[in-house]
Amino acid sequence: MKNALGQSQTIVLLGGNSDIGVAIVRAAVTPFTRQVVLACRDTARGEAVAATLRSEQLAVAVEAFEGGEPAGHEAFVAGLAERFGNLDLVIVAYGLLGDAEVTRTDVAAAVALAQVNFTGTVGAIVAVGNQLVRQGSGSLVVLSSVAGERVRAANPVYGGTKAGIDGFCQGYGDWLAPQGVHLLLVRPGFVHSAMTQGMKAAPFATSPEKVAEVTIKGLRARRRMVWAPPILRVVFSVLRHVPGPVWRRLPLG
């Protein structure tokens, strides 16, 4: 359960090797926290992350999880609840950037990316949502991206999946709220992380730690959506309305 300061006893990260996800977990862990679950594909890497989190008061479990295979999601989440009790904070942070050169033209690659980033993620969010509704409480953080706010030619499949998740979560979060469940949609800009290694940074680039800081603040204030860095909300309220011919010429990295 959470305490009156909004601190969580049990935290689950779907995408246990996501730099942003792990940064959010680190920021959410307090002396009140007892259990962290890192659900990921590469459990060996997950164990390495777990070793940096684990302490005398904090148990960390690493669980094998295939984000792109939603058929198992419901049972997976229910199993976590059975073993660890109330899931107080669940962070859905998995996803692939994909190689735009490939996904733009290769049908199988495009579908595979959509399978993980959209289909599998929707399945995971619904499975988690069901569990939190059964609890009558809990927080669900979903990582969207500004790439979904106005999808660009530079990476349309990735941007499209994020746009889909973002839109789904806005409606789904509103449906969850009266059932005691708080869904927070996080829209980061360019984040220096393993996913973006070697890429040229876009304006207003940020770090996983900064995204985590904004996320924790948003959780505390029970916001439905946060931007990281927050200035991007203003930037995108302009970019959203830039005429197409201008938009397509903007040097956005």
């Binding site: 305490n3 009156a4 909004g6 009558g136 409480s137 009266p178 059932q179 005691g180």
Partner: peptide
């Protein structure tokens, strides 16, 4: 009916029947 309940401190609402 399902309702959000808190204690007198008005923190940590949970929903129950």
């Amino acid at each position: 009916p399902r309702r959000a309940l808190t204690g007198w401190g008005r923190s940590n609402a949970t929903v129950s029947e």
